[in-house]
Simulated assay, not measured.
Amino acid sequence: MRAALYRRNGRASDVLEIVDLEVPDPGPGEVRVRIVTSGINPTDWKTRDGHAGRVPDGFQVPHHDGSGVVDAIGPGVDHLAPGQRVWLYLSAFGNRYGTAAEHALVPAERVVPLPDDASHELGACLGVPALTAAHCLGGDPNDLSGTTVLVAGGAGAVGHFAIELAKHAGAYVVATVSSAAKRDLAIAAGADTVVLYTDPDAVEQILAANGPVDRVVEVALADNLALDLAVVAPGATIATYAAAGELAIPASDFMVNNLSLTFTLLYGLTPEQMAAAVRWTSEAVAAGSLTALPIHPYALEQIAAAQDRVAENPVGKVLLQVGAP
C-alpha cells in the first residue's frame, strides 16, 4: 500500500515521505480500513514536529481522522463487517497506522459506522473536532434541550460542530466570530445569533439574544474569560479545549455564581466519556444534523504541503484524498 510516514520528528518537508508498505493484517480487536479520505488536525502536525514529545517507534503513519470502507476485521470484532462505510478517530494515537495511507489498522472502538447518505468528506471532518465539541457540551444531548450555549470561535472546526451538535440537542446557540465572513459560516452551521467578539457591545448583544448562557464552549480562555463571566448564568459551565500558558482565575466570581470550569483533551477521556461523545456525534450524523467544513483537498503525495497548510490555521478542513469511495 502507498503510505505517508515519518521516522523522526521535524519539519514536514524534511521528514515526511511516501513509501510502499506491506498491508498489515488485523489482530484481535482490530479493524483494517481502506482509506478514502484522511483528515488533518493541528495535533497531527504538532506531533510530527515534536511538540508532543512522542518519537516514532520505527515509523509513524500520521493522522487521527479519516473515512473509508472496512477491509478486514480481526477476531473478536462483531459490530463491523467488511464493505461497511466508516469514519475513524484517534487512529494514530498509540498506533503506527494512521489514516495517511491507503489502509489504516486501528482498534475497533475507534471505527464508527458512516451512514450511506453521509459523505466521506464529512466522515473525515468528524473525529477530533466533533468529539471534542460533544464532550465540551457535556456529553449528553438530553442535558442541553432548552438551554443557551455560547460557542466561541464559531467558524473553527470544533466551533462548527459545537454549533451543530447543540442545535441537534435543542439548545439556543450564540456564536462569536472575528469577521463578517466567519459570521456567514457560523450562521450556515445553524447558530441562532452570531456576534463579532471585537464589538464594544459584544456582551450586551449576547445577553440580548436569549439571556444569560448556561454553557460556554471556549477556544481562547485567557482572552475571553472576562466576556464569558459577564454573560453566564449562575451554575453555568465554561468548557475549554485550547488553553495554554498561565491563567489567572477570579475565584470569587466562580464561587459566588457556582460556576464550573472544565478542560478537554481527547487523549485523556475515559472510555465511558469517549463512548458518550461518539454516540452523540453518530446520532447527529444519522439525523443529518452535521455538515462538512469548507474543504481544502490535497493528494496523498502532497502531505507535507497539506500539513503546513493546517499549521497556518486556515478556515475549514484540510483533507487528503487517498482512495476511491
Score class of each variant (00 low, 15 high):
residue 121 E to G: 07
residue 131 L to D: 02
residue 147 T to Y: 14
residue 173 V to R: 10
residue 130 A to W: 07
residue 153 G to D: 11
residue 127 G to C: 04
residue 101 A to D: 07
residue 161 F to N: 15
residue 136 C to Q: 00
residue 129 P to T: 10
residue 111 V to G: 00
residue 90 L to P: 00
residue 156 G to M: 13
residue 122 L to F: 05
residue 93 F to I: 12
residue 164 E to L: 04
residue 83 G to E: 06
residue 112 V to N: 08
residue 174 V to H: 02
residue 127 G to H: 07
residue 157 A to I: 13
residue 132 T to Q: 03
residue 123 G to E: 09
residue 148 T to H: 12
residue 150 L to G: 07
residue 102 E to P: 01
residue 117 D to C: 04
residue 118 A to Q: 09
residue 160 H to I: 11
residue 82 P to I: 12
residue 165 L to D: 01
residue 95 N to Q: 13
residue 142 N to Y: 13
residue 101 A to V: 13
residue 93 F to G: 00
residue 165 L to A: 02
residue 86 V to L: 09
residue 146 G to L: 13
residue 81 A to P: 00
residue 160 H to C: 04
residue 97 Y to S: 00
residue 135 H to L: 00
residue 127 G to E: 09
residue 165 L to W: 02
residue 172 Y to V: 13
residue 119 S to Y: 07
residue 139 G to Y: 05
residue 154 G to K: 02
residue 144 L to T: 13
residue 98 G to Y: 11
residue 85 R to Y: 10
residue 147 T to D: 03
residue 137 L to N: 01
residue 133 A to T: 10
residue 134 A to S: 09
residue 142 N to S: 15
residue 93 F to Q: 14
residue 99 T to P: 00
residue 150 L to Q: 13
residue 109 E to F: 15
residue 105 L to Q: 09
residue 84 Q to H: 08
residue 164 E to A: 08
residue 167 K to A: 07
residue 168 H to A: 15
residue 104 A to Q: 06
residue 170 G to R: 12
residue 144 L to Y: 12
residue 110 R to V: 07
residue 139 G to I: 11
residue 163 I to T: 07
